[in-house]
Each structure stands twice: as structure tokens, then as C-alpha cells.
């Protein structure tokens, strides 16, 4: 019985398209995995050619991936891949760069200061907020524990 305003949300579920869980996960897996594989190739390159250590090679690798992602966003390719990759393009750091670049690009028509610069962190701001808050809280707790014991 669909004609029941109180329970419509529940009853209408039978009429909703079924989510292709497996396909979505497979796409997220191979696209996300490939981005990390590309990252590993870049990292190995920095370690062998510029003699970065395993600990420090992460920085130029992430920066390079961010550059690639920003350019792909500019050329309008990143969102096309993301259409089927789902979390495969959101979770890697390239997704972070895409959210920054796309927000800035979207508001370009409002000018460099009020458009691009003001909106740069429109979507990515939450990553920094949650990262800093959780790291600060955990850092304080850990330091306290280390000092006491």
C-alpha cells in the first residue's frame, strides 16, 4: 500500500532501483588501487633518482599526485572517471586535490579574490578541520599518558 503518507518512505523502498554493490566495490577497488600503484611508481622514482628515503619520499609523491589530479580536474577528466569509480577517486589524496580545484574553478566567474581564493576550501575544509581536531586531541592524550607513565 503506497497511498499511506505516514509510511510512504518505508513502503516505497520496494520501488527503488537496486544498488549494484559488487560492481561499485570492484570499480572503487581497481581505480583506487591503480591510483596508489601510480603513487608507488612515482615514489620509487623519487627514491631511486633523487635519493629520498622511504620516510621522506611520501611528500614529493603526494605533491606530484596532487598536481596530476588538479590538471585532470582542469581538463574535465577527473569527474568523468569519478562517475563510475565512486570512493576509488574520493579516498585517495587526488580526491582532496579535486575538491579544492573544482571549488576554485566553479567560482572563477566571481573573481580571483572573492571567487577562487575564498571558495578554495569550500569542500576540502572539513578534511583539515577533522584532521587537526582529531590529531590535536589524540596528541594531547598520548603526550599526557607518556608523561604520567
Amino acid at each position: 500500500m503506497l497511498n499511506d503518507p505516514k509510511n510512504y518512505k518505508e513502503n516505497v523502498k520496494a520501488y527503488q532501483p537496486k544498488l549494484p554493490y559488487v560492481t561499485n566495490c570492484l570499480n572503487a577497488f581497481w581505480v583506487g588501487g591503480s591510483i596508489c600503484l601510480i603513487g608507488q611508481v612515482i615514489q620509487t622514482f623519487y627514491m631511486n633518482i633523487f635519493h629520498f628515503s622511504k620516510q621522506t619520499a611520501g611528500n614529493p609523491t603526494v605533491a606530484t599526485l596532487i598536481l596530476i589530479s588538479a590538471l585532470m580536474t582542469g581538463f574535465g577528466i577527473y569527474d568523468k572517471i569519478a562517475k563510475f569509480a565512486g570512493a576509488g577517486t574520493i579516498v585517495p589524496v587526488t580526491g582532496f586535490a579535486n575538491s579544492i580545484t573544482s571549488s576554485a574553478l566553479e567560482h572563477k566567474s566571481e573573481g580571483i579574490v572573492l571567487g577562487i581564493a575564498t571558495n578554495l576550501f569550500q569542500l576540502a575544509g572539513e578534511v583539515i578541520v577533522f584532521g587537526v581536531v582529531s590529531a590535536a586531541v589524540l596528541g594531547i592524550v598520548r603526550l599526557f599518558i607518556e608523561q604520567v607513565f
Binding site: T73, G74, Y78, D79, A87, I90, E106, L123
Partner: peptide, 16 residues
Amino acid sequence: RQFRYPTEYGGPTKLT
């Protein structure tokens, strides 16, 4: 842009 995300943002799309 008004109701969802920037046009170049790679958000997942839903079937509905």
C-alpha cells in the same frame, strides 16, 4: 552548482 557540487567535482552519482 546550486544544489549539489561544483561541476568538476568527482562525487559519486546515485541511481535515483
